[in-house]
């Protein structure tokens, strides 16, 4: 087995968004903290959000309590990264 490598919260969120939306690396690299998500991206429906949360838990080895998840979290890419960073630091 190869060694585990650490994935930063920013990189993990970017990778998961890339996979959900089917974007290229260049496209997802252009995401900034102001990039709008929910509402701006039709692919990001409730089912995709469910997959996204579980995938972030899996990749970052965190647990997300669903009570912590509200609409604002998915307003922007920056909100989501900040949330992931907070969970990793816990």
């Amino acid at each position: 087995m190869q060694n585990e490598v650490d994935l930063t919260p920013d990189a993990a969120v970017r990778a998961v968004m890339k996979d959900i939306l089917g974007l290229s690396q260049e496209q997802v690299d252009e995401f900034t903290s102001e990039t709008e998500l929910f509402g701006a991206l039709p692919e990001l429906d409730s089912m995709a959000v469910a997959g996204l949360l579980t995938e972030l838990e899996d990749r970052l080895d965190i647990m997300i309590d669903d009570d912590e998840v509200d609409g604002e979290l998915f307003d922007t890419f920056g909100n989501l990264v900040a949330f992931a960073e907070m969970k990793v630091a816990e």
């Binding site: 585990e4 990778a15 996979d19």
Partner: peptide, 28 residues
Amino acid sequence: RVARLLTDSKPCDIGLEGSALWLRAEPD
């Protein structure tokens, strides 16, 4: 032999470049 995507940080025997298609909104 365990294969994972390169974007997955967990231990594996080989990391493959590609998308997590299981997350995609539509089959692709």
